[in-house]
Design a protein around this nucleic acid. Structure first.
Length: 426
RNA sequence: GUGGGUGUGGCGAAGUGGUUAACGCACCGGAUUGUGGCUCCGGCAUUCGUGGGUUCAAGUCCCACCAUCCACCCCA
């Protein structure tokens, strides 16, 4: 009846203990890799002025047209939960004048994004991205570094069967020409195109190239590609990016049909794909966006970056049965018998925690039997048993759970003892 | 926004119109005095997503709604 109180909003997830450790591990690794490459973390707000995304992402994109979580705040400001991380990063770069520091600026972020989509495997309304951005260099080695960083990260996780697809979508001039030649190419074929592609022809003919309908694929077989339409300058840039990729041993596939959905992309576009996690096979996607910073009110500044889907990454790791850390077990469990001992065990627990041990205890006045059962569930190596008898003598029983042996030691000796034993067993 | 599948206790899962809704796991308690893992015993769904309808009788049939999963569009 009051189900909404116990049901999370559609397309969102609770990350529970046991699972959250995996997230922490993935985030830590991302931070470490970024650090080695000289990228610095940036944390921008989770919401921004709607205008930023209209401008930055593009008014005709699906994100803006139908996927944004937008609302008026109490001050009548039009606010949107960020659907992606690049525009906010650009905004922060400009607002905080990071361009005044040595260039290029190399940033990374990890955090939630929001898109109002129908959820399915690997797609959620709140999802998390790890992304990097480089502002201020159009050097082809930067393109290769960005792609290489993503590959490095994924390889360190031991993932198999990854495919790096790259393409160039050219500069705005190339794109304009390409669009015209595409429309001309499909002119006499438009009646045969599928329903969605019929509509795409006028608005976004680029997308016909990666339509999944077999007939559209066949029809577009010999269509001009962004690559073939690229001007000499863009061709050269793309060529150099490939040379740099080869230099660092990254295997890639040139996919002339690869186009990215957001308006701001120019030149290099790339995706890292993986099979086996459902229809949404793009683990990571990114590219160059040399016009975006100017579009957002800055001086003309080249940029490039990627976004990597954390949920999809977890799905992949799961599917490939890669092991990740799970929740740890306490060092010791403290069982007590009787009210006095309960109080003493409470103090003992806190003293030991202050010494750095991970300590669990009983909070329910359970029977000793039940407490040992609980200790067993926690899989602790040692249980301290504190009863009236021991308490009187300033002692505790220290029980080795695996060997079922226990000795009596004085409370003052516990720390030393555990220090030695727990280290030895580690 | 469109299409398809699913919806029984914390989880897995029987049940296909008829007395008290199997079973497994998990959880909690107990098997004489303060001792876990094995075993045994006991407890744990006034109820089958929600609301209507058909029927003498519905978890079982019909309708609607909701949720969830998958897919399309698109994207991470």
């Amino acid at each position: 009846m009051i189900r909404v109180l116990t049901t999370r909003p559609r397309g969102t997830n609770d990350i529970l203990p046991g699972e959250v450790e995996k997230w922490q591990y993935l985030e830590e690794l991302a931070r470490n890799v970024c650090k080695q490459y000289g990228y610095h973390e940036i944390r921008t707000p989770i919401f921004e002025h709607t205008e930023l995304f209209l401008r930055g992402v593009g008014e005709t994109t699906d994100i803006v047209e139908k996927e944004m979580y937008s609302f008026l705040d109490r001050g009548e400001r039009n606010i949107t939960l960020r659907p992606e991380g690049t525009a906010p990063t650009v905004r922060a770069f400009l607002e905080n004048k990071l361009y005044a520091q040595p260039q290029p600026t190399k940033l990374f972020y990890i955090g939630p994004m929001f898109r109002y989509d129908r959820p399915q495997a690997g797609r959620y309304r709140q999802f998390h991205q790890f992304g990097i951005e480089v502002f201020g260099s159009n050097h082809p080695s930067v393109d290769a570094e960005v792609i290489g960083l993503a590959c490095d990260y994924l390889e360190r996780l031991g993932l198999d069967n990854l495919e790096v697809h790259i393409n160039t979508v050219g500069c705005p001039e190339c794109r304009k020409k390409h669009k015209e030649s595409l429309i001309a190419f499909f002119e006499d074929k438009k009646d045969q195109l599928c329903e969605t592609c019929g509509g795409r022809l006028e608005k976004n003919p680029l997308r016909i190239l990666d339509c999944k309908s077999p007939l559209c694929q066949e029809l577009s077989e010999n269509a001009p590609t962004t690559l073939s339409s690229a001007c000499p300058e863009c061709q050269i840039h793309f060529q150099q990016v490939q040379e740099y990729l080869t230099e660092i041993g990254i295997k890639y596939t040139i996919n002339p049909r690869l186009v990215r959905g957001l308006d701001y992309y120019t030149n290099t576009a790339f995706e890292i794909l993986v099979q086996g996690i459902g229809a949404q096979s793009a683990l990571c996607g990114g590219g160059r966006y040399n016009g975006l910073i100017e579009q957002c009110g800055g001086k003309p500044t080249p940029g490039i970056g990627f976004a990597l889907g954390m949920e999809r990454l977890l799905l992949t790791l799961n599917q490939q049965e890669k092991s990740l850390p799970e929740s740890g077990t306490p060092d010791i469990f403290i069982a007590s018998i009787g009210a006095e001992a309960q109080k003493a065990s409470f103090k003992l627990a806190i003293d030991l925690r202050k010494k750095g041990f991970i300590v669990e205890k009983d909070y329910l006045d359970k029977s000793l039997k039940a407490q040992l059962k609980t200790a067993d569930r926690f899989q602790v190596k040692y249980t301290l048993i504190l009863g009236e008898k021991e308490l009187a003598g300033g002692k505790v029983l220290l029980r080795d759970m695996a060997g079922s042996e226990q000795i009596e030691i004085s409370i003052s000796e516990i720390e030393d003892f555990l220090e030695r034993r727990l280290q030895k067993n580690e």
